[in-house]
Amino acid sequence: MLGIKEIEAIIPHRHPFLLVDCIEELEPGVRAVGYKCVTFDEPYFQGHFPQEPVMPGVLRIEALAQVGAVAILSEEANKGKLVFFGGIDKAKFKYKVVPGDRMRLECEIIKRKGPVGIGRAVATVDGKIAASAELTFMIG
């Protein structure tokens, strides 16, 4: 299990934009599974939406991308590099993520060619799919 300090040693994201609390499973260059415990104190809940706080879909996708970045950047050849978005395909949002939810984030690298690849990503809450997408990444 990787905690915040170990995650910060792999990816450059920091609070309040670090959207992964821990990594539970890791196969460098292949896949990673992490979690985000969503609290009412998240800064985006002040405006999205004050009467009914919902985690924005784009932040769910970002959390998935950060888990994918941990998988890619934990590979020995990529340590110290950055990973950038190259594209987001087949994104779907099926279930609201609200304060108190523990979101499971899984990203499996399904294709790679040189510094570009694709990860299949799924976020779930209590076994229900909250978001899914295919994320294209570029190692910089």
Score class of each variant (00 low, 15 high):
Met1Pro: 14
Met1Gln: 12
Leu2Phe: 15
Glu6Ala: 14
Glu8Arg: 12
Ala9Tyr: 07
Pro12Asn: 06
Pro12Gln: 04
His13Gly: 07
Arg14Tyr: 03
Arg14Cys: 05
Asp21Arg: 10
Glu24Lys: 13
Glu24Val: 15
Pro28Met: 00
Pro28His: 00
Gly29Glu: 02
Gly29Lys: 03
Ala32His: 00
Lys36Ser: 08
Cys37Trp: 11
Val38Pro: 01
Asp41Thr: 12
Asp41Leu: 06
Pro43Val: 13
Tyr44Phe: 15
Gln46Ala: 15
Gln46Phe: 12
Ala63Ser: 09
Val67Tyr: 04
Gly68Ser: 06
Ala69Met: 05
Val70Trp: 04
Leu73Val: 07
Leu73Thr: 05
Ser74Trp: 08
Glu75Cys: 09
Phe85Gly: 06
Gly86Ser: 14
Ile88Gly: 05
Lys90Ser: 13
Lys92Val: 12
Phe93Arg: 11
Phe93Thr: 13
Tyr95Ser: 14
Gly100Arg: 07
Gly100Lys: 12
Asp101Pro: 10
Met103Asp: 03
Glu106Trp: 00
Glu106Met: 01
Glu108His: 11
Ile109Asp: 00
Ile110Cys: 07
Lys111Phe: 11
Arg112Leu: 02
Gly114Glu: 07
Pro115Ile: 14
Ala121Ser: 13
Val122His: 02
Val122Thr: 13
Ala123Leu: 02
Ala123Thr: 05
Thr124Met: 05
Thr124Arg: 04
Gly127Cys: 09
Gly127Trp: 07
Gly127Leu: 07
Lys128Met: 13
Ala131Arg: 07
Ala133Thr: 04
Ala133Arg: 03
Leu135Ser: 05
Phe137Ala: 02
Met138Lys: 11
Met138Trp: 10
Ile139Asp: 03
